[in-house]
Amino acid sequence: MSDRAFLSLENLTLSYGNSIAVNKFNLDIRKGELVAFLGPSGCGKTTTMRSIAGLLNPTSGRITLDGTDITRVSANKRNVGLVFQSYALFPHLTVYENVAFGLRLKRMADADINARVTAGIKSVGLAALSGRKPAELSGGQQQRVALARSMVMEPKVLLLDEPLSNLDARLRVEMRAELQRVQKETGITMIFVTHDQAEALSLADRIVVMRNGLIEQVGTPEEIYNNPVSAFVADFVGFENVFALKDGKLATPGGAVALSEALPGNAAGFAWRPAGVVLDTGPFQGKVKSVSFTGNLREYLLDTPLGPITAEVSAALPVHDLGTELAFDLPLKAAAPLQRFA
């Protein structure tokens, strides 16, 4: 049961005029899974999410939810919840009435509405504020109201648009915990859209990396983080030193470069995180262009014949001045092989 698709998108395509926003998107999501759509703006992640909600009509393809084809079901009958990035609370209604909005439309009995709304507001920790208007709440509190408003409807899927991006660092941690708790307690299937890899890695069970309307890679946070399949994904998850492979050598701005170890020929490229670059020893030379202190680590930007190289070393090591010539190495064991380079 658990590995059967609960929500499935088949060949989902959305185009505006001549431009294709989402191109033949295929994805199966299991019940209770927490999936992140990750990508830069314009990659089609929001468009995909809005078409699951029914706010956009796909040009072609099929959306199936819990065994029913919902491709042509109107948005108000899908039982899909959406927490908007701007929260989209109703400014003229109190917190209580915002949360009760959908239940009232269902013409539920007042006592049932009261029970569910009260429980919903309590579960997001806002019981004391239920009489307030949205304008009297902080951004974090407004988001909790938006979450409660969707959750009391007991949707089959809950969609969240950039759920953490409008919050400051401390609230972000709180909200992340909140979402994980809600998901654990209710077992609800959640999809959230984000452009922030840290957000996707920390929250999701599975990440869908998107680019130009296409899926670039689907995998667990560990897979995406450690084994990016393409230069795009590698760059997106923090591999700052990315090279294409040509005839067993790295293609660099300064020409083909061989590493000290033989490179496997079946890869299209290799990528190193700043922490994977070895400093002070190795066959290559680079000049320190900038240094920045990030707490535990010190990050160096080197000007090298291989192009700019970013390296990270423990901040406890003695600092190198700007302009210093440093030796460095790109060890194969720290490299991620890429299946695609484009």
Binding site: G54, L55, N76, L82, F84, A88, F90, L105, K106
Partner: peptide
């Protein structure tokens, strides 16, 4: 008035007119 408020209402079960 932001248009996503109407979309929020629709996703909570309202018709466009509602």
């Amino acid at each position: 008035l932001r248009s996503d408020m109407e979309e929020a209402a629709v996703l909570l079960g309202a018709t466009r007119l509602g």
